[in-house]
Design a binder for these strands. Structure first.
Lengths: 110, 110
DNA sequence: TTTGTATATTGCAATATTACGATAAAGAAT
DNA sequence: ATTCTTTATCGTAATATTGCAATATACAAA
C-alpha cells in the first residue's frame, strides 16, 4: 500500500498524471511563473525568489526536470534553466481535449 | 517539516497547484476519462471500471470533488458524478497562458 | 421490517513527499 | 593554490498520500 498502482492504468493516463503531479506544488508553479517572467534563461536567482532553502529549491527543480517541464544545461558555474514548451503543450492539449470532448456531448444532467 | 509552505505563495499559485495535484494520479485521470466516455452522468459503475477497491475509488472521487473537478449529487441510492467544466477551463486557461506568454517572448537561448 | 445495493468513513500499514542542515562538487576569481 | 559562488546530493525528520479491510450509512426493494 501507499505506492501508486501505475501498472493498472494506460501509458497515457500515467504520463498525464506524472505531468500534473509535477505541477502539483505551489513552489513549482512559482518556478514556472518566474521562468516566464524573466525573459532570459540564466536563472541562477530562482533560490532568492522563493521562500525556500536552496536544497529544497534544487529538489523542486529536479522534479520539474524529471517530468520534462524544464530543461537545464550547465553554463559556467551556474545552470541555465528554461521551460520545455513541448511538454507544456502536451498538458495544454490534454486540457483542451477534455473541454472539446465535453462540448460535443450536450450533457445536461448536472 | 514535510508540510507544504502554502502561506508563502500567491493564492493563484496555490490554487493552480491544488488543481494540478488533484489530477496528479492515474486513477483520477482514469476517472475523468471515464466521465468523458460515458455521456450520461449516472456513474455508479466507476468502481467496476477501475482496478482499485471501492473505498480507494471513493477516496479519489472525494479528492476530485474537493478540488472542484467533479460535481456529485445524491440521486436515489447512487451518486450522480460529472465533470465541473468551470474548473477544468481554469486549468486549460493557465496552460494556454503559459504557452502564449512564452510565444510573445522569443526566447532562443535553450 | 428485513434484505440488498451503493457509497462513505474509519483505521491503519506501506510508501512518498516536503523541507532543510550539512556537506560535496565544480567552475570562477583572486 | 586558495577562496568564493553556485548548484547538487545525502541524511533525516515531519507530514501527506495511497490502498484496502472493516464498518457505517442511506436509500430501494421485497
Amino acid at each position: 500500500m501507499g505506492a501508486t498502482k501505475t501498472d493498472h492504468f494506460t501509458e497515457q493516463q500515467n504520463a498525464m498524471a506524472t505531468l500534473a503531479k509535477a505541477l502539483g506544488h505551489p513552489a513549482r508553479i512559482a518556478i514556472i511563473d518566474y521562468l516566464l517572467k524573466v525573459n532570459a534563461c540564466i536563472c541562477g536567482d530562482i533560490v532568492n525568489e522563493l521562500p525556500l532553502a536552496q536544497p529544497t529549491v534544487s529538489q523542486h527543480l529536479k522534479e520539474l526536470k524529471n517530468a520534462g517541464i524544464i530543461k537545464g544545461e550547465i553554463e559556467g558555474n551556474s545552470i541555465c534553466y528554461c521551460l520545455n514548451m513541448d511538454t507544456l503543450q502536451k498538458l495544454a492539449h490534454y486540457c483542451q481535449s477534455i473541454i472539446s470532448t465535453q462540448q460535443t456531448q450536450n450533457n445536461s444532467c448536472c
